[in-house]
Design a protein around this nucleic acid. Structure first.
Lengths: 108, 108
DNA sequence: AATGGTACCTTGCACGGCAAGGTACCATGT
DNA sequence: ACATGGTACCTTGCCGTGCAAGGTACCATT
């Protein structure tokens, strides 16, 4: 139950993190997943539904590109609306983080 | 979809916040809910299942106390194991927060 | 009697991460 | 030739948990 904290925490934040990664350059799901796995322990099975959702919401667009090693990669690119969403979510995150820090207060 | 971020963010963090509140003194669900509603927008319907879970997990114990105004209150008190859980969760939170900040990087 | 605040609680729903599994391509080793 | 292992895509079914909406009951005020 205690260990579910990490899992639950991720909800909602992953989309923002993916948007942030993409804001630094186009990328493909497998690589994003690897980075996120290292950073916050995201499972690979999580990325594909997430990318699909983001595409449906118009936050990213895609294009295929050969890789030379392995199957072709599907690159994701931030749209303008994705960039806006990133800004909005980052400021929400900061508000939230601040509120939590305030509650924790001296418990930190 | 964007506004669901706030909702999702709460998952996993609420337990830690409640533990933090209780570490400053015993309290009853209704009051905890009010404070959390103000701080992070938690709905009242969320607190009762949460408190029940925490009690089942042995993080809190309860006692009844008359209030003079309205029905008797069920006070929650942190157990030792609850205090330990708080410490653990706070350090997990800090790790997570740091990882997210690193990913956001200059997007902030 | 009726309203409104306090305080408890339940039910049904939706969202989204996870584990486990599956497909296919390519390079390397034996 | 074939097996192994890495890359890269994707799907399915499950589970935890916050939410909205609703329900009960006590008490004070109007």
């Amino acid at each position: 139950m205690t260990e579910s904290l990490q899992i639950q925490l991720k909800k909602g934040v992953l989309e923002m993190c993916v948007l942030a990664l993409l804001s630094k350059g186009d990328n493909y799901a497998y690589d994003i997943a690897s980075r996120m796995a290292e950073a916050v322990g995201m499972g690979e099975g999580t990325i594909y539904p997430l990318m699909r959702r983001m595409q449906n919401d118009g936050l990213v667009s895609t294009y295929l590109q050969e890789s030379g090693s392995g199957p072709p990669r599907k690159y994701y690119k931030l749209t303008k609306s994705g960039a806006n969403a990133l800004k909005a979510q980052v400021s929400e995150w900061i508000v939230f983080e601040t509120a939590v820090r305030k509650i924790l207060g001296d418990a930190t």
